[in-house]
Amino acid sequence: MGSDSIIFHIDMDGFFSSVEVREDPSLKGLPVVVGSDPKGGEGRGVVSTCSYEAREYGIHSAMPISKAYRLCPDAVFLPVNMQLYHQVSENIMELLKSYASGFQQVSVDEAYLDVTGIVSNYEEAAKLARKIKDHIRTSEGITCSIGIAPNKTVAKIASDYEKPDGLTVVTPDSVREFLYPLDVSKIPGVGAKSQIILEKMGIRTIGDIGRTDVQLLIAKFGKSGIRFKKIANGTYSSEIVEHRLIKSISKEDTFEEDVADTNVVKKTLAILSEQVHTRLLRKGFVFRTVNLKVRFSDFSTYTRSVTLSAYSNDKMSIYRTALRMFSEFEGMGSFRLVGVGVSKLVKMDEKQRRLDDFFDVD
Rank of each mutant, 00 (worst) to 15 (best):
S48K: 06
V119E: 11
R130I: 03
M63S: 03
N121H: 12
S61H: 05
Y122W: 09
E124A: 11
R130G: 07
N121S: 11
E90N: 14
S89M: 13
R44H: 15
Y57V: 01
V119W: 14
K131L: 10
H86N: 12
T49H: 13
K133T: 03
G58Y: 13
D114W: 04
F103M: 07
I136C: 05
A126K: 14
V46K: 07
K131C: 05
R44K: 15
M93Y: 15
H86I: 12
Y99M: 04
N81R: 15
E56I: 08
V108S: 06
R55W: 12
D134F: 10
G58L: 08
A129F: 08
E123K: 13
V106M: 12
P79A: 03
K67C: 09
C72V: 07
A54W: 02
L84N: 03
Y52Q: 04
H135N: 10
H60W: 05
Q104G: 04
R70H: 11
S61L: 01
H60T: 01
K97Q: 12
Q105P: 00
K131P: 00
F77K: 02
R70K: 15
S61P: 00
Q87I: 07
Y52C: 03
Q83V: 07
M63K: 06
K127Q: 09
S89I: 15
P73S: 03
Y52H: 06
T49N: 10
Q105W: 14
H60S: 05
A100K: 06
H60P: 02
Y112S: 04
E94C: 12
A100R: 05
I136Y: 10
R44Q: 09
D114R: 03
D109H: 11
H60D: 02
V119P: 12
P73L: 00
A75R: 01
S66N: 10
E123Q: 13
S120W: 08
E124I: 14
Q87F: 15
H135R: 11
E42H: 15
N121G: 07
L71N: 05
L113V: 09
Y52P: 08
S66E: 10
V88P: 01
I132V: 11
T49W: 13
E42S: 14
Y122E: 03
F77N: 00
G43M: 09
R44L: 07
